[in-house]
Amino acid sequence: MLLPYWVCPVATLHAFANPARFLKIAKPMTAALFWAGVALVVLGCWAGLTQTPPDYLQGETVRILYIHVPAAWLGMGGWSGIAISSIMFLVWRHPLASVAARAIALPGAVFAALCLMTGSIWGRPTWGTWWQWDGRLTSMLLLFFVYLGYMALANADADRGGDGRIPALYGIAGSVLLPIIRYSVVWWNTLHQGPSIGLTQSTIAGSILWPLPIMLAGFTFVFAGIVLMRMRTILAVAKTEARMRRMARP
């Protein structure tokens, strides 16, 4: 099937529409991504804890950023993944896309929660409060709840033999939060500071910033490894259930 060039990245994924082919590649990739990610996280933690200077104002608490920023990035990136998978499922009826969206939901929610917790731990000494209902904090908390809602909906849909269309619609609708979280600190006045890291420059000094890309890459690899692991689990469960049904037939 020929597709226009602008759907090329998607077109290459069609090669994996066949779960058997996907599983063949996913199996070695799971361990490779996960352990490469763990190694990078260990390296990043060592660098962030021992090799960087403290901040002139925050002191040592600045080091929370090496966990907080990757967690926020994956909390939001996870939902982008759910939204893209949902579109692929609705448009191309790609069966693995809905499996991917379901697999992303749990680690996405865990990283969103990690982002909220590390932010709270940083906020107490820096701002003088664990929690405030400002635009950034509230919209991130909403994203966490939206994740929980997605998991409940997707599991209920799968249990009742649904076709996955309703969770996919929810996945697209939930992306309304992504621009709100991103721009909350720019357009509203908030307690949370504005963006430190832009596409071309950063207001974080280089000597403090450099372990962050290592941590970002490490967290992302671990996340990808977990998603592949969960996708394989979902496929294995489906296979087992199909076999059980066949065996139960008289």
């Binding site: 002139y56 600045v62 701002w127 207001t203 000597s207 403090i208």
Partner: peptide, 9 residues
């Protein structure tokens, strides 16, 4: 309120 600038002492 902390700003978005982080730097060593």
């Amino acid at each position: 309120k902390h700003d978005e600038k982080y730097m060593p002492p």
